[in-house]
Computed example of a mutant assay.
Amino acid sequence: MDGDLAAAIRAEAAALGFAECRVASADGAIPLSAGRLRQWLEAGAHGAMDWMETTAERRGSPQALWPEARSVIMLGMSYAPATSPLALADEGGVGRISVYAQGADYHDVMKRALKALARWLVARAGGDLKVFVDTAPVMEKPLAEAAGLGWQGKHTNLVSRDHGSWLLLGAIYTTLALPADGRSGGDCGSCTACLAACPTNAFPAPYRLDARRCVSYLTIEHKGPIPTEFRAAIGNRVYGCDDCLAVCPWNKFASAAHAHLALAPRAELTAPEVADLLALDDAAFRQVFAGSPIKRIGRDRMVRNALICAGNGGEAALVSRVVALLDDAAPVVRGAAVWALGRLDPARFAAEAGRRREGERDPAVRAEWESVAIAA
């Protein structure tokens, strides 16, 4: 019966749009994860993501979060792109958004599908369960590896034989005792393409990520000014970074045809004009990014990111927009505008600095005026 139930779960998951569905035991499936997480946190590699530290004990194993859990159903939803995310790397006038964020918010898409599968499972076999998508203290990638969806690559993300590096993960914890599928095997061999592709050298070693150097962390999670040492390397990335994922050789087996339809990219988010992003106020930001995961970073961080891109792109036509943002209410925006202006138009920067620097009340923005002037 358990085997028949597991097969039925996989069939129902496929009908709901999941590309992968496999089972791991809730007990002892990821014995090394708690220790590795502790070492990562002790090194401070999580940056300002304090919730990783406060929930560390519950992340260590499924039963640490929910003692009644007996099985973990791990599910993968494909978001494989139809074109290379690297294609816009040299287009200074447009912003690059990570593939997963170009469509509907995957949290909402996956949560609906997970809840539908959960309702089906309870009706079919009973038991209690909990569903998780990214926001709970769940070690999705180690659990996905334990269940056999793939393996954690040297870029620390999951790699699938069939879907490359393009799987979003969700989990259902259940009190049902389901037969575990076991690990599928596979590894990255001698390949280091993902490590070499990182623009900010965020991998101190294979299978280790220092989030403090990661463009995704810097443009999404980091709330303050982006450290100067990383700004040029960010290029035209305004939200996240796909480089380490995009170069994975296993992507040759992935197909956009397997991607969930609800995650299809919106045309206005595939290559947004930096000029348009610089013009966003709060209302326009909410309108443009409604239903997108990007909405959670808020307008100020998006405009900060767009200013970094403007400074890197060298588009003289953006100078007037950048100057206007020197008066923005948000210090993080004003500071980024100072840096961008110094890159785009040194003469205009000098003129603006003469009348603005002493009157700036925010110490971080004032430091931007000083540091750019020194660099010039």
Rank of each mutant, 00 (worst) to 15 (best):
A13G: 03
L16S: 11
L16T: 12
L16M: 05
A19P: 00
A19I: 01
C21D: 03
R22S: 13
R22Y: 04
V23E: 04
V23C: 10
A24Y: 09
S25M: 08
D27L: 14
D27S: 11
G28C: 06
L32S: 09
S33M: 15
S33L: 13
S33N: 13
A34F: 11
A34P: 11
R36M: 12
R36S: 10
L37N: 09
R38P: 01
R38H: 14
R38I: 01
W40D: 00
L41A: 08
G44K: 07
D50K: 09
W51S: 14
M52L: 14
E53K: 05
E53L: 12
A56M: 06
E57K: 12
R59A: 04
G60V: 02
S61Q: 08
Q63F: 10
Q63T: 15
Q63G: 08
L65S: 11
L65M: 13
W66F: 11
P67W: 07
P67Y: 09
R70V: 14
I73C: 02
M74R: 09
L75N: 02
S78P: 08
A82P: 03
A82S: 15
T83C: 15
P85E: 08
L86A: 11
L86F: 03
A87Q: 13
A87D: 10
A87P: 01
A87L: 12
A89N: 04
D90Y: 01
E91I: 00
R96G: 03
S98T: 14
Y100I: 04
Q102Y: 06
G103M: 03
G103S: 05
D105C: 10
H107T: 09
D108W: 07
D108G: 09
K111W: 07
K111M: 15
R112Y: 02
L114F: 05
A116I: 00
A116F: 01
V122S: 12
V122L: 12
A123Q: 15
A123M: 14
R124N: 06
R124F: 07
A125K: 05
A125N: 07
G126N: 04
G127R: 06
L129G: 04
K130P: 07
F132M: 11
F132K: 02
D134T: 10
T135D: 10
T135N: 11
E140R: 00
E140N: 06
K141F: 09
P142R: 01
A144W: 06
E145L: 10
E145A: 10
A147V: 00
A147Y: 06
L149G: 05
L149R: 04
G150F: 13
W151R: 08
Q152D: 01
G153R: 04
N157C: 13
L158M: 11
L158E: 04
L158F: 12
